[in-house]
Simulated scan of single mutants.
Amino acid sequence: MALQQKINIKNRRASFEYEFIDKFVTGLVLLGTEIKSIRLGKAGLSDAYCYFMKGELYVKNLHIAEYAYGTHYNHETRRERKLLLNKKELRKLERKTKESGLTIIPTRLFINDRGLAKLEIALAKGKKQHDKRETLKKKDAKREMDRMRKV
């Protein structure tokens, strides 16, 4: 049995643009060629966001590259994909997004121990420009401290 590499695709821009309030791990409804592309690490979360439609949560603009060996059964790269959460979590997320102007963004796409693709989503609030500058200052200070420790 071949040793499989860990797939962990992150949305690095999300932590810069948003302040995370709560995180959830969801399942995805995928086609066969989509899971094969994810296992090869060919996915991107940079422009993706989540929205509600008829009480169900969907992710839009999640880019999963076409599978190289897929024939006419290949998938669309940026199609809408349904997210799998229990009803209690769905109601909580829908209530929070409607009442307080929060948004839901995907932060990480990974393959769990059982071989299933999972998407970590975050209930998030957009940062203001001065908050982004503060984040950059903290990151630079941390980098300087790490450099000083190595010397």
Rank of each mutant, 00 (worst) to 15 (best):
K54H: 07
L28A: 07
A14G: 09
T26I: 08
D113A: 13
M148A: 14
E134H: 14
K132H: 13
G70K: 11
S100W: 09
L93H: 02
F24G: 04
N61R: 15
R143K: 15
E99T: 15
L93N: 02
T71V: 10
T71W: 07
R12Q: 05
I35Q: 09
A141S: 11
K127M: 13
R133N: 12
V25N: 08
T33C: 07
L30I: 02
E89M: 07
G115P: 00
G44M: 11
T97M: 04
E19K: 06
L93C: 04
Q4H: 10
D113P: 01
G41I: 09
Y49G: 06
N61S: 14
L85A: 01
D113R: 13
K54Y: 07
L119T: 04
L3F: 13
L119I: 05
A117E: 01
I9T: 06
I9R: 04
A68L: 13
D47Q: 15
V59A: 04
K132Q: 15
I7M: 04
A65K: 08
K132T: 13
G115T: 04
Q4N: 12
R108T: 05
E17N: 12
L102K: 14
M145C: 00
A124N: 10
C50Y: 02
L83T: 07
I121G: 06
F20E: 01
R79D: 12
K142P: 03
H75D: 03
L84S: 04
V25L: 07
K42S: 11
R81D: 03
K36G: 00
R147E: 15
T33V: 00
L119G: 04
H75V: 04
T77K: 10
K150Y: 12
E94C: 02
E99F: 11
L90W: 03
G55R: 02
P106I: 05
L102M: 12
M145H: 12
E17R: 12
K88T: 12
A43S: 15
L123C: 12
A43P: 07
K88M: 09
S15L: 14
E56N: 09
K150G: 09
G70P: 11
K88Q: 12
I9P: 02
D146N: 11
